[in-house]
Design a protein around this nucleic acid. Sequence first.
DNA 1: CGGTCTAACTTGCATTTTGCAAGTTCAATT
DNA 2: AATTGAACTTGCAAAATGCAAGTTAGACCG
Lengths: 128, 128
Amino acid sequence: MPAAFRSDCPIASALDILGDKWSLVIIRSMMLGAHSFQDFHRAPEKIATNILADRLQRLQAWGLIETTPARPGARGGYRLTASGADILPLLQTLARWGEAHLENRSSPPDWFLKATPADVLARASRQA
Amino acid sequence: MPAAFRSDCPIASALDILGDKWSLVIIRSMMLGAHSFQDFHRAPEKIATNILADRLQRLQAWGLIETTPARPGARGGYRLTASGADILPLLQTLARWGEAHLENRSSPPDWFLKATPADVLARASRQA
DNA sequence: CGGTCTAACTTGCATTTTGCAAGTTCAATT
DNA sequence: AATTGAACTTGCAAAATGCAAGTTAGACCG
């Protein structure tokens, strides 16, 4: 769903998709194990529900996340796709920069900094 | 100038500083050699001048860029600080993700993907 | 099968941020 | 002194965000 990129620069284009206040925070939560609307809403950053609903749709439209099918008579959740899992290195780099240059930030779990996209994708596909 | 972070998560906090449509585009331009207001304005993404002025101030307030002193009787420019140069890995990761997952994006110069923060910092400090 | 509960949205509206066009300022020519 | 061009600034329209309050749709209980 290319809604027209600002330029053909891959950095600017990636930011057209991910460069807002919330998208990467949601993906971070998902990498840390969240997979329902409520899980995301519970995160300490306190995202408004309308923004959350909007971002989940956008991320899904871009193919970074998908809804889990939901067995007959049950609500589904969300999980990362392969493209979404590939955002892990970006989050790891962000986390390292934040820890190095900002004061009093908390540390992400150790496995998070060591994981690979394949790891989180494997965990995602195990998600119902 | 910590204007209050959304949470103590280093990822969310880094995004409080860098997570908007323009900040990283400006830093990208700077890494690619831009160092004046006009240079940034010339970039293909067509940033509005008021946003550009605002972002340059914010990035400076966060200590990611600084103005070059300007020898007596001449306007200065901008260059990256050490913290700013450390954003290079983030941009490289973004570039790789963009190239891998979006179609028809251009390729950044080869040296850009191979450079280290020390490299771009060295170049910055050579800037008048 | 009806009633209730809770997660998952949706809607309306105030606030903030962004975008665009037009100034204004200031140093460097001419 | 007048002119130019880069570096902002300002005013206002448009879009994104935030918040509070609704609405919908399965799940659970009787």
